[in-house]
C-alpha cells in the first residue's frame, strides 16, 4: 500500500533527477561560469556548509509561516461566515476582498516595515493578505453549496439559524475549506519570505537578500531549496490533517470505535 503510494511520485522523481543531471552536465561542461550558476552538487555543498545559519533562519521563517497561516485561517473563516450572512453582506464585502488581492505586495511590504517595524508582525500581515483569500473564497463557496432541501429538513426540525450553520453548513464546507487551505499553505512560505526580503532581522528572505548582495549565489539556491522543501512539507501537513479530519471524504466506510 505504502510502496504503491510512493510509486505514484515515481514519474515526477525521474523528471526532477533528469533535469538536475542536465543542469549538472551543463555547468560542468563549462557552458556557464559556476559563479553565476552553481551546479546542483555545489548547491548541496553550500547547504551543508552553511547549515547552522540556514537552519536558524529557517526556524524564523517557519514560525512566521505557521503563525501567519493560522491567523489567515481564522480571518478567512470569519470572512466566509460574514459573506454568508446575507446577500447584501456578500455584495458589500466580496469586492473589497478581491481588491485586497490586487495590492502589489512589492509596494505594500516596505510600507508595512515603516508603519510597524521590522519585527514579526509585518511579516504576519503579508502572509495573512496572501493566504486568507483562497480560504475565504473556498469556504464561502462551500457554505453556499449546501442543498436547499437539507436546510428545509433542518428547519422542519425547528433548528435555529446557528444550529443549521454549525450542524450542517460548516461541516459540509470543510472539504472546500481544506482545498483553500492547501492553496494557502503553498502561498504562505513565499509570503513570509517576501515580507522578510524587504527588511528583517532573521529569516530565509533576508538571508537570500544578503547572499545575493555578496554574490554568494550557491547560498541563494540553497535557501531556495529549503523554501521549496518547506512549502511541500506544509502542503503535505495540510493534506494529512484533512485525511484525519475528514475520513468520510477519503473513502472510509465506517467509524472506528
Amino acid at each position: 500500500m505504502k510502496l504503491r503510494k510512493l510509486a505514484n511520485y515515481g514519474p515526477a522523481l525521474v523528471l526532477i533527477l533528469a533535469l538536475l543531471a542536465l543542469w549538472q552536465l551543463y555547468v560542468q561542461a563549462g557552458q556557464v561560469s559556476p559563479l553565476f550558476l552553481p551546479a546542483p552538487t555545489a548547491i548541496v555543498a553550500a547547504l551543508a556548509h552553511n547549515w547552522p545559519i540556514i537552519y536558524d533562519n529557517t526556524l524564523q521563517t517557519l514560525l512566521e509561516t505557521v503563525l501567519g497561516i493560522l491567523l489567515a485561517t481564522l480571518f478567512g473563516l470569519a470572512m466566509a461566515i460574514l459573506l454568508d450572512v446575507s446577500s447584501w453582506m456578500r455584495r458589500a464585502i466580496y469586492p473589497l476582498l478581491v481588491i485586497s488581492q490586487t495590492i502589489p505586495m512589492i509596494a505594500l511590504a516596505p510600507l508595512l516595515l515603516i508603519w510597524i517595524g521590522p519585527d514579526i508582525r509585518s511579516k504576519l500581515i503579508v502572509v495573512i493578505i496572501y493566504c486568507f483569500f483562497p480560504i475565504a473564497v473556498a469556504c464561502a463557496d462551500g457554505l453556499a453549496s449546501v442543498e436547499p432541501e437539507l436546510i428545509n429538513l433542518l428547519r422542519s426540525m425547528r433548528a435555529t439559524r446557528w444550529q443549521i450553520l454549525w450542524m450542517v453548513r460548516l461541516p459540509a464546507a470543510l472539504p472546500s475549506f481544506f482545498s483553500g487551505l492547501r492553496i494557502a499553505a503553498t502561498y504562505s512560505v513565499v509570503g513570509a519570505i517576501f515580507g522578510e526580503y524587504v527588511g528583517a532581522e532573521k529569516g530565509l528572505g533576508i538571508y537570500m537578500q544578503r547572499a545575493t548582495n555578496s554574490f554568494a549565489i550557491a547560498q541563494v539556491f540553497a535557501a531556495i531549496v529549503v523554501t521549496a522543501v518547506l512549502s511541500l512539507l506544509l502542503f503535505g501537513l495540510v493534506s494529512l490533517i484533512e485525511r484525519i479530519a475528514l475520513p468520510w471524504y477519503h473513502g472510509a466506510t465506517y467509524r472506528r470505535a
Binding site: E147, E149, L150, N152, L153, S156, M157, V168, P171, A172, L174, L246, W248, Y249, Y254, R255
Partner: peptide, 13 residues
Amino acid sequence: YMPQKPLLLPWKT
C-alpha cells in the same frame, strides 16, 4: 418530515 432525497449527512455515521 421526510423529503424525497434521503439527505443523510456524509460526515456522520
